[in-house]
Design a binder for these strands. Sequence first.
DNA 1: GTAGGACTTGGAAGCGCTTCCAAAAATCAG
DNA 2: CTGATTTTTGGAAGCGCTTCCAAGTCCTAC
Lengths: 340, 340
Amino acid sequence: MSDNLTLDEIAKRAGVSRTTASRVLNNGPNVRPEVRARVQRIIDETGYRPHPVARSLASQQSHVIGLVLPRRTEVLFNDPYFPRLTQGVAQACNDHNYTLALFLLQTAADEEKFYPRLSHKGLLDGIVIQVGQIGDNLIARLLESDVPTVVAGRPLNQPTANYVDVDNVAGAYTAVMHLLRLGHKRIGTITGEMHTTAALDRYTGYCKALQEHGLPVDETLVREGYFTEIGGYEAMQRLLPHKPDAIFSASDAMSLGALRAIHEAGLNVPRDIALVSFDDLPPATIARPQLTTVHQPVLAFGIKAVEMLLDVIKNGPTPPRQIIMETKLVIRDSCGAPTR
Amino acid sequence: MSDNLTLDEIAKRAGVSRTTASRVLNNGPNVRPEVRARVQRIIDETGYRPHPVARSLASQQSHVIGLVLPRRTEVLFNDPYFPRLTQGVAQACNDHNYTLALFLLQTAADEEKFYPRLSHKGLLDGIVIQVGQIGDNLIARLLESDVPTVVAGRPLNQPTANYVDVDNVAGAYTAVMHLLRLGHKRIGTITGEMHTTAALDRYTGYCKALQEHGLPVDETLVREGYFTEIGGYEAMQRLLPHKPDAIFSASDAMSLGALRAIHEAGLNVPRDIALVSFDDLPPATIARPQLTTVHQPVLAFGIKAVEMLLDVIKNGPTPPRQIIMETKLVIRDSCGAPTR
DNA sequence: GTAGGACTTGGAAGCGCTTCCAAAAATCAG
DNA sequence: CTGATTTTTGGAAGCGCTTCCAAGTCCTAC
């Protein structure tokens, strides 16, 4: 093993000082080529690896970033969204030689317990935190601390926050416009939890499209679905009596539930009810009919969040950075439009 | 923030030496109660937090453990199994005040790149690694290194490995016995990837049940499904021409695909084909009909793995530890049995 | 031949903590 | 009250690395 081998030892074997050895290890300047080669050879031969913790202590940076997923992990891990986000973050970490520390804060108690750890400049160089419920103040507290932080999703009332989000309003707007153009008049919506900005923004896009089309927002056609299959199922059941001819569902997981409720009622999608969804995650193509859905680039989203964070770590928190990523409507079978 | 506050500073304010301050910080012995109280008060008042990295360097342990999920993360993160496992591991880490580092090694190149990091006693106190493909030698190499390692799932040909697994053979056996008792004769199976021990063991259980019942294993009724919905779908399509009257599917995700294929063929579950699955994850209750399935305690599994690891870290690798967790058949609608 | 500049090098001081060990203080037995 | 124990304390040496800074080396130009 490469353990128990120290930089001192490498330096000794190469006949140089530890300082010089450190320089070649870190590709620093001011080392004569032949010396560099000699030291490098020893490093390669011995398979020496610097001790990451010692390095962190001396350099004041750990090359570890934290991904914080607060609360409601029952939802988190039933929705393929979060695993996918995690995957994107992990991939970006790998690419940039950072280690990913994962914090699943399932309860308020967890949050309290972890807050000191997170806010302490020590183990973590920075944090990507998934935006949670609006009432949560973890994000606010993190932003007050001097730990570089990037929020995944738009946090409410945090103008100085660095965040990356997808254009939920535009995405939802496009989805509903699509239904309108197909001639639907009674378009219902299954929203996510209305204390999340994602749900709010998608609802806003829904309203905007209706209004532009001169249609009122009918409250009886709006139901909250909590971003889960069951949630979508129950919301759809409550929607059915009001005879919608189309539904905009704010997530693929909920759409699965909505489909189930519609089918159980003996109705057909898209013939009786057209459905447009949001996410374009695996459920979209597994569902029958396959879902017409607003594609959001979740993997790229996670990657962007990490890259933004590394930028903040490197160049400081000002000015605040914000990236809004584009969405794209993917037309499949559930809306009844010709798929060309 | 509590940063820039050092133990030296605490010691100075309390009028003791750093050594004594360290002792009360770590609840060490040999401190006069009044002194302990005085130091503790300063710590509480200032909100002082020891620098984790400095602590790691001095104590030679980081309180960080790694969860390594090798390869095939396309599969990993489409199957709810892995998020759930991660959740269990994360929860146990929280409970024991360890930090979780997540390594998603998607390619062989990732593995190569990460191996040195993993095997270096430094950042990681220990590793929980998900058993991967049989050909993988990452586990073997890790076991050779002196980093405490616990394998999630039974690794092949690694008698000295610490691992926790569920009793896949018994679980599958029970599932198939259930179908046999219901009077089915042509019981097919959709296996997972046959280079994983989970798939192999479940197949073994399937064969065992048939043989005990005096039935031959009919190769035309066995198909590999790669542990995904699509995999289950395709496997079922190839199985249908051979007219099975029941199916044992080695995972819930695959069962979803199998159901889809059966329904598309105009057949009914359980009337035309009975289905028993494995996992009891969310898809099992989302599917229609709801799946009769072998419950495996995934969350507890992740927790056990961490606890075993902490034990190995504390007490050394010998003797090798092995835990086999029980499974339980959960009877729902897809097998046609009365659900009492 | 030499002064000036540019490049190399290594000594030493940390980074913030734990822990060994010896010294000091307190306790106990007789 | 004294010597032997036990408990409490702090000095000092690390843990393995980075990095500041001064010293040394090598050119180049005049």
